[in-house]
Write a protein that binds this DNA or RNA. Structure first.
Lengths: 182, 182
DNA sequence: GAATATACGGAGACACTCTCCGTTTGGCAA
DNA sequence: TTGCCAAACGGAGAGTGTCTCCGTATATTC
């Protein structure tokens, strides 16, 4: 890749991160291009769709997901606490941008989505939590990581849309946890 | 209201019903106006926003919600079956249009939403189910109807976005039910 | 330093929302 | 029945956003 192309790509990602954080996932892409100081054509050449741009933004996020799972899994204690800690972490991770929860959760399981890799990262991290709980025989049968992602993602999407705070989300997560634990 | 205004209003609702069913909640409103054979101005005079139009479409739906709750409540049997029957009914009711689940669920609890009345109808129907289950002492403590609506609505939204079928939704609803029952 | 592939920029086509205002019409009073 | 006018209509067009096309500029290679 040419040096100027590389530079523009990075500027665009940085600008998009800013704009999306300020205005949510629906922000104008022309605004992103303008803020990056490039033409609209340049943006669309690098990132043919909003989703591809989103995916690029989230590179550093992948590391954060894995770190968070590590952190949750070192905690010793009740399975219920572990599971709830992961749920709250999960909600936090997918709620970085307005509209994020719905976007990510609806891509969950769709192999053709531009953000598959992100979903797989999340699913894999959740799988680690599931594995741990299964070792401890704490989970009911037939509970799969993808179901966890969908349920918790659904709650996160509702919370995102309705501007619910942590306190309102907690009991919803508790219901899900209680429905999954023996 | 003048006779022509009344007629146009009805035509618009009918056209919107069609267009939204075909193209989802995001369909073009100009298309609705065109299909109804009226100008855009007429549409916006009758229905200042998409939500107000949505609300009008759903008039007949209110009756359906109440009928459905009646039907579910006559069934004798295990509390779990009753609850799951209501959940599946609920998902069906809010999934009539693409984008409906997210729309309805995010308006749940927002007093300023143009579709409050619809949400209240749903919440009231759910409350009837909650009341029945509480009579039977089948529910855990601190379970509220609005939480049920949010959880089940979240699942419905995910299913809507990801095109999940009934079979994939069922286990998610079971987790929620098990998390709520004693 | 010339040649060439690569990338840039932004004008503009297209789509959608919503408003404004000149025109038309339904309904009532005489 | 007629004439009036408030009520309602329609659609052009302004505002905003998406995305493409292609003439121009520049990084890289030899």
């Amino acid at each position: 890749m040419r040096a100027d192309a590389q530079r523009n790509r990075e500027r665009l990602i940085e600008a998009a991160r800013e704009v999306f954080r300020e205005q949510g996932y629906d922000a104008s892409l022309d605004e992103v291009a303008k803020r990056a100081g490039v033409g609209a054509g340049t943006l669309y050449r690098h990132f043919p769709s909003r989703d591809v741009l989103m995916d690029a933004i989230m590179q550093s996020w992948v590391d954060r997901v894995n770190d968070s799972a590590d952190k949750v899994l070192v905690h010793e204690g009740e399975p219920r606490d572990l599971l709830l800690a992961w749920f709250e972490t999960y909600v936090g991770l997918i709620s970085m941008h307005k509209g994020g929860p719905a976007k990510i959760t609806s891509a969950m399981g769709d192999q053709k989505s531009p953000i598959v890799t992100k979903c797989q990262t999340l699913a894999a991290a959740t799988q680690r939590v599931v594995d741990r709980l299964e070792e401890e025989h704490a989970l009911r049968e037939h509970i799969e990581a993808v179901q966890m992602c969908r349920l918790v993602g659904g709650v996160a999407a509702v919370a995102d849309n309705s501007n619910l705070d942590r306190a309102a989300v907690r009991p919803l997560l508790e219901v899900i946890a209680d429905g999954m634990l023996v």
